[in-house]
Amino acid sequence: MRELEDELIERVAEALRQPVHLDAALDVRVMAEVRTRPLRRSNWFLRSRTIRVTPLGALALAAGVAALVLGTAFAALRLRPAPATVSAASAVPFVLVAPEARSVALVGDFNDWDTAATPLRATGLSGAWVVTVPLPPGRYRYAFVIDGMRWLPDPGAPRAPDDDFGTPNSVLTVGT
């Protein structure tokens, strides 16, 4: 009986050892990505990798769909890293998925929490709003303001530990 059972496991293993078909372009994608990131350099990575996506439409979207939106945004970004900048400030893009918003603003330590200073631009794609902000190295608290009145932290970023004024913020570290 045991021999028969082990024979079955061996047949399972044999079937699983057969080669699997993988996308031939996988190697190309890997190499395209690593070519943008030479080793042993200090400034190669950060920049446009910092993407902040907030699924405001979570009320309307199922959680799985929201996750898919997040995943898609990140996947697209992975394949298209922007060239690194050499200036002291890093261009940090912020993205918010808010299909029903009429306006979105970014507020934080970097703009004196001025709700008029950094509006996001609607892309017309899946309700995404974007803005890119040059930020010197440092640690920043920030939030989004929807339609001038609704404050929203970034669910894809760490939540700031103190919530002094009743609406939570997110934190972002920008490196040198």
């Binding site: 004196d112 929490w113 002094d164 004024f165 009743g166 609406t167």
Partner: peptide, 11 residues
Amino acid sequence: DRALEGASKGA
């Protein structure tokens, strides 16, 4: 920054 955050939030 913290004070300005409070002001913007109407605290």
